[in-house]
């Protein structure tokens, strides 16, 4: 049965989404690992369905500054995919690509930003490619957009986009572990409700 809201998802459907998160994040981690020449592991990805304010608390408070790479999906699936890169992650990438670190986000200039965009873009594309071949669906991606700002406002982008449909936001994704240390890089997939139904049907878990 097609769902009308995220909270109607059955436990089988949630497990399926978790599996997608696991495969997608795993592929993204492999891509990251090749880029930075370091071993990267993933933590158990989560599927979370949260109210707006809950989601912002979950990511670490509204005013915290973060770098965000955003890609919009269209085709058989509509949605937004975000890579929220906190300073620890930023420095992990910069250290292993440009051989330098920054003290804060003001230290990011053109070169550093374009590395971060590229890393975000490659991780997102790898995630989406895995999803697309797994479910046999066509997904088109926009060119990545980038900003450094308060993470509350960045998280609000997918919320506002689908806010007319739902009071909740669904995110699928997880953190990385690199060099034995947890690195907070949140890869977040937020599909709209219609696309979620398409996805679950294609994967054969929505009984119709």
């Amino acid at each position: 049965m097609a769902i009308k809201n995220y909270d109607e998802l059955s436990s089988l459907e949630l497990d399926t989404l978790k599996e997608i998160g696991s495969i997608g994040t795993g592929n993204a981690a492999t891509a990251l690992s090749q880029l930075i020449g370091q071993q990267v592991r993933i933590q158990m990805p989560e599927v979370r369905i949260m109210g707006y304010n809950e989601a912002i608390e979950w990511i670490g408070g509204p005013e915290e500054i973060t770098a965000g790479v955003l890609v919009k999906m269209s085709g058989q699936i509509n949605g937004i995919m975000l890579s929220c890169q906190q300073l620890e992650f930023v420095n992990l990438v910069l250290r292993n690509t440009l051989g330098k670190e920054v003290e804060d986000y003001f230290g990011l200039h053109e070169m550093e930003c374009s590395v971060l965009i590229e890393v975000g873009n490659i991780m997102i594309s790898t995630f989406i490619n895995a999803l697309s071949s797994l479910a046999d669906i066509q997904i088109e991606l926009t060119v990545p957009a980038f900003t450094v700002d308060m993470q509350g406002a960045i998280m609000a982008v997918p919320m506002a986009q689908y806010g007319g449909q739902s009071d909740y936001i669904m995110t699928i994704g997880g953190n990385f572990v690199c060099d034995g240390k947890e690195v907070p890089c949140r890869l977040l997939l937020s599909p709209d409700i219609r696309s979620l139904n398409v996805l679950l049907r294609k994967l054969g878990v929505s009984g119709e």
């Binding site: 965000g68 955003l70 926009t142 060119v143 957009a145 980038f146 900003t147 960045i154 609000a156 982008v157």
Partner: peptide, 9 residues
């Protein structure tokens, strides 16, 4: 927040 080419985002 984001400059996206194409789409009403």
């Amino acid at each position: 927040m984001f400059e996206i080419s194409g789409g009403s985002l």
